[in-house]
């Protein structure tokens, strides 16, 4: 088991190196320096600023010293917000984004698996067609359209729920979580249905029926485990998608989270911030992929046995 984790962590090393290197040089080769936009900066001031941000040093030494800082967990100072470090900015945006992603994932898993199960248990009936039609809508209705539409209907027309903010008004977390979770709920529903139908057609389900087990035991004990594995394996990639989706949702609902911070940094050419948050996102995604891989592997005794044998 530990060897599996270790080997997966080792695989993550080239990923992170690629991310840092690619981002670092992309950002450095961008036309226009970070201070070009400021009205008129005196040459001395500019030089002093550049010295402060180590921009006067050769590129490779900047690159190496960035790595040095990174390994100490230091993303460096922000270009755009003098006096604040990227660490502080990320720490400020992280809670809202984490919470949003968590609720969205919850929506995706609970709603999605519920709908998928309902569909799989009565294939080709209205209980199958209705959730699957809704899932199709969820997949085809992009977040960037669903968010505004929900705001328009529930926020502005019906005035049931607040249209923006995060944690300021009661119920203001509902619409963003639904918006972000909807598309993934749809994917999860389709995956669950597919996985369950696949499992239910297996010979060992027929064996369970031949043993005269109650239907609830057949579904809950014999089928669910195998049917859920594709969903678990999907959670890693889904999380990466949720992070990107948070760019849109946080913008639409004006949530002070990482996503909005990143988009703003991108517009402001706040290079250290872009670099820092990209690396941070990459680490998060790698960790989440690892977790979902491990969980999927753990659910499968065949893989689990092989893992145990290794350690």
């Amino acid at each position: 088991m530990w060897r599996f984790i270790a080997s997966r962590l080792l695989q993550a090393v080239p990923v992170l190196i690629t991310v840092v290197t690619l981002t670092f040089f992309l950002v450095r080769f961008a036309p226009g320096g970070p201070f070009d936009g400021e009205k008129t900066v005196l040459p001395e001031v500019k030089r002093a600023l550049e010295a402060q941000y180590r921009l006067d040093q050769p590129l490779w030494s900047q690159y190496l010293s960035y790595w040095g800082d990174l390994l100490h967990g230091d993303f460096g100072p922000s270009f755009r917000y003098p006096g604040r470090s990227v660490n502080e900015l990320i720490a400020a945006g992280l809670p809202a984004t984490t919470e949003l992603a968590f609720y969205a994932l919850l929506v995706a898993v609970v709603v999605g698996m519920g709908a998928g199960l309902a569909a799989a248990l009565r294939p080709n009936s209205w209980r199958d067609y209705l959730p699957m039609a809704l899932a199709m809508i969820g997949i085809c209705m992009p977040t960037l359209l669903l968010g505004p539409l929900l705001v328009l209907v529930f926020g502005i027309e019906l005035e049931w729920l607040p249209v923006s903010g995060w944690g300021d008004l009661p119920g203001d977390k509902i619409l963003p979580s639904l918006t972000l979770g909807a598309a993934y709920a749809a994917y999860v529903a389709r995956l669950t249905r597919g996985g369950m139908l696949e499992v239910l057609s297996q010979d060992y389900i027929r064996t369970a029926r031949a043993k005269g087990l109650p239907e609830a035991v057949i579904i809950g004990k014999h089928a669910l485990r195998g049917g859920v594995i594709p969903v678990v394996a999907f959670l890693g990639p889904a999380f990466a998608g949720l992070l990107c989706g948070s760019f849109v949702v946080e913008t639409v609902f004006q949530i002070p989270g990482l996503g909005r911070l990143f988009v703003q940094a991108a517009f402001n050419r706040d290079y250290t911030m872009i670099l820092g948050s990209t690396v941070f996102f990459a680490v998060l995604i790698v960790v989440f992929n690892l977790a979902s891989d491990l969980l999927a592997a753990w659910l499968n005794p065949r893989v689990r046995g092989a893992l145990r044998g290794q350690s």
């Binding site: 010979d203 064996t207 031949a210 195998g226 659910l299």
Partner: peptide
């Protein structure tokens, strides 16, 4: 009670 052809696929691999 019944027994089936392929014991590989007829036993639940998860239990």
């Amino acid at each position: 009670a019944m027994i089936f052809q392929d014991p590989m696929t007829c036993l639940n691999p998860f239990l």
